[in-house]
Design a protein around this nucleic acid. Sequence first.
DNA 1: CTGTTAGCGCTTTCAC
DNA 2: GTGAAAGCGCTAACAG
Lengths: 341, 341
Amino acid sequence: MRPTVHDIAAAAGVSLATVDRVLNQRPGVRQATRRKVEEAIREIGYVRDVAAANLAKSRVYPLVFILPTSDNSFMHGVLEEVKQAVARSGGERTAIRVIEVPAFDPSAIVAALQGLASEKPAGVALVATDAPEVRAAVDDLVAAGVSVVTLVSDLTGSRRHHYAGVDNIAAGRTAAHLLGRFLGAKEGEVAVLAGSMLVRDHRERLEGFAALMAEQFPQFSLLPVVEGRDDPELVNVLINATLSKNPRVIGIYSLGAGNRGLIKSLKESRPQRDLTVVAHELTAHTRSALKDGLIDAILNQDAGHEVRSAIRVMKAKADGLAIIPAQERIRLDIFLKDNLP
Amino acid sequence: MRPTVHDIAAAAGVSLATVDRVLNQRPGVRQATRRKVEEAIREIGYVRDVAAANLAKSRVYPLVFILPTSDNSFMHGVLEEVKQAVARSGGERTAIRVIEVPAFDPSAIVAALQGLASEKPAGVALVATDAPEVRAAVDDLVAAGVSVVTLVSDLTGSRRHHYAGVDNIAAGRTAAHLLGRFLGAKEGEVAVLAGSMLVRDHRERLEGFAALMAEQFPQFSLLPVVEGRDDPELVNVLINATLSKNPRVIGIYSLGAGNRGLIKSLKESRPQRDLTVVAHELTAHTRSALKDGLIDAILNQDAGHEVRSAIRVMKAKADGLAIIPAQERIRLDIFLKDNLP
DNA sequence: CTGTTAGCGCTTTCAC
DNA sequence: GTGAAAGCGCTAACAG
């Protein structure tokens, strides 16, 4: 049997209440007594039963997700996963609330973050827009004792506890590697489509992509980045323009969302143009385009994993508990036609 | 506040003990009373607090892992992950035991399985060798009320509750897809290295690989499969022989373990031969070979995920609880030089 | 400062 | 058949 608080109390010659005070670093214990109890805890090899503690406290973890209201399948997927987590709230002792904010708008995030300062949830997960004022607002929340996790796009330099998302520089490099090898001996130009250079994940993907292309595949020249704001309509127009203006384009890297528009362009260009395409995020649209051979590879981050991981981490950090790093690492999934889930 | 057993008791006008009997399907309740209680449970929308129940029962889940004593890094990794799970046993209420059996030996697995019949652990996870007697022994355990999970290699046709491993047909197809596209316009032969055709995972990978090569890349002819028994020494000898006998080999698919031997051969052949290689399982050896360009892509299953997932599933099945399917799906990871974890 | 006591939600004797 | 009461490991009033 694992040792319990009773065993500590007996060993240290004190009452349960005192043991509890020491265990939870609450005041009202003499230094000497405290030391005695800590000694006993160590001697005996005690580890707290978190489930029992939570039961006694009737603890629930109030959690907040701040998500952009982007009209793209990926963000819809994230929202859907959060909703499923809400459905599981009972068993997981969580109370989850979602705040939707306009996309690519730092001030909206800051406002949401500041609104939470008084509410003091156990944890906040946000899709961060990379701006100093967001960083400051995050740091304030952390200082107020809230556990903060960035989701999908990170906020380096801030004091957030954890990032639940993929390594986007590696993602860009991987895209370049695949595109380069798939293109093989061909020669020509490569177009890059992004959402916005305001979000860190897009910037990093571009950075990784451009770097590896330059290092390993200098035979392909990169066209200037096209920013489609993750908007299918706009993307469609921009890509059509790019393709008609640049007849030598043989490859496309779509590093943002709004691929519905890209796919439309690809379909229209199909008989004449032979394009090798790598895109991000597996959605109903990109999936069927992959199957049809319009897209050659999809890089993906598992939204379900990201959301579940963010919740686990927020809970753990709220209690000052350790996480299992490998379990919380968000993989960059590579999907080809043949390994679709 | 979520409804509790007390609420049910009050609503049904019975005592807690009776509610508990109904909840746990124990005898000693009149049919009429039982119905009344079940009614109340439904009306009130009760869901049991598993943590509290486990606390009251001082429940621990005795779990057994049956693993082959293969001298390869992948199985060592699995064992390592199980050990880490043992270290977490306290908080997870598990008591994990490992039984090691000789590799590729159905009778050893059967003996282990039968030995467990009397012990009746809550769950058993095994790396299955595909044989009728193993299937029968698994079915017996399931019939005895033990929850059984196959790990890494499945046992279709048996009554195991769950398979914690990758889709190996898809893995083989993915390997073919990568190899075919990476080889591009070249022409020549492709060699396939397996561990043993006795294990289902290897057979399935081969099947998927051969099928896709035939469909999509008929320009490459496949050499007969080489069986290296996952043994680095043997693999080294066999691959050396294959390479010298077949000068037209331009690609290799290593679908089993023992890649240490393969890598040795690759190093030795290096200046003269230009080989495109796809291998399975990320280990210290394959990782550095990937970095050095000896291997072009590695297909991997995350041993840590597999072990943690197996444990979650065994526990859930033992209690008749639902799992989150997406969380328990083991991905086929594709690693290139650029997306190594 | 320290201890006693009554729960958290559920299970389990042991009576009736 | 059914119920009262004690207790799982921990926390939180409330006394002293």
